[in-house]
Simulated scan of single mutants.
Amino acid sequence: MKTKAILGLAEVNTILDAAQHEAEANQWTITVAVADDSGELLGLRRLDGASPMTAMISARKARTAALSYKETQFFENMINEGRTAFLSAPLEGLLEGGVPVVVDGRVIGAVGVSGVKADQDAQVAKAGIAAVL
């Protein structure tokens, strides 16, 4: 029987705390979402002043990154480079800022961030992930 790493409550809280710290250090108002490997939401934190819309977007970025095993930047780049037919794919959150959490070569979940520029969203997500790896 195989075993796999998972994101437990302690890891989810560590990710949320580290992402919040990164955002606050840069004076960014964001929402960060953490999903399991099936894309289901494990935790979400919307910082004071973040738009309500960022909660939905961050959760969808996390889901897409978890299910695709790819950073959502991959999809944003593909679409921006002219492959607009991909917009009909049954995924949402195709903007940069969703990052898979990879342990021993396996995706165990993902983090999605929304609220600032695309590369800044990704920076916050990666800071959250770095706190647990």
Rank of each mutant, 00 (worst) to 15 (best):
R46C: 08
L42Q: 08
L95F: 14
E24M: 11
A130S: 14
I79Y: 10
D104E: 15
G109R: 01
L91D: 05
D37Y: 12
L42K: 12
N80Y: 03
T54F: 08
G43Y: 05
M53R: 09
S88T: 14
A127Y: 04
L47E: 08
G39V: 04
L16W: 01
Q27T: 15
L67I: 10
E40G: 08
D48W: 00
H21G: 02
A127S: 10
E24K: 12
V102K: 06
G93I: 09
A19C: 04
L87D: 12
G105A: 14
K126G: 03
G98Y: 03
N13G: 00
Q20M: 06
T31Q: 03
T3D: 09
D119I: 10
A35H: 08
P52T: 01
I129E: 06
A89Y: 13
I6P: 00
F74S: 12
L44E: 14
L94T: 13
G109I: 09
V116M: 00
R45K: 14
S51Y: 02
I129R: 10
E96W: 00
F86Y: 14
A33W: 07
K61D: 01
A131Y: 01
A55R: 10
D17L: 07
G8T: 07
A59I: 02
G112R: 01
F74M: 13
L7Y: 04
L67Y: 05
N77K: 13
A18K: 06
V103E: 12
E81P: 00
T14P: 01
A18D: 00
L94M: 15
E96N: 05
A35S: 15
T3S: 11
L16F: 00
G82L: 05
G105K: 14
G39W: 03
A65L: 02
L16C: 02
S68H: 04
R60S: 05
V34T: 07
I6T: 11
E76H: 06
T14K: 15
V107L: 09
N80C: 06
N80A: 13
V116A: 10
D37I: 02
G97N: 06
G8A: 08
G128D: 02
M78Y: 12
G112Y: 05
M53Y: 07
A65K: 01
H21Y: 08
I79V: 13
A50N: 05
T14Q: 15
I57T: 04
E81G: 07
D121I: 02
G112I: 07
G82M: 04
T54L: 04
E92H: 13
S68Y: 03
T29W: 04
M53D: 10
R83F: 13
V12N: 07
G109L: 09
G128F: 01
A19I: 00
R83L: 12
A18E: 00
G97E: 07
I15E: 00
I108F: 09
V12P: 05
K2Q: 14
E40L: 10
D119G: 03
T64A: 14
L47D: 06
K4E: 09
V12H: 07
S58I: 08
M1F: 14
V99S: 14
E92A: 15
R46I: 05
E40I: 06
N13M: 02
G109F: 09
A127W: 01
F75A: 06
P90N: 11
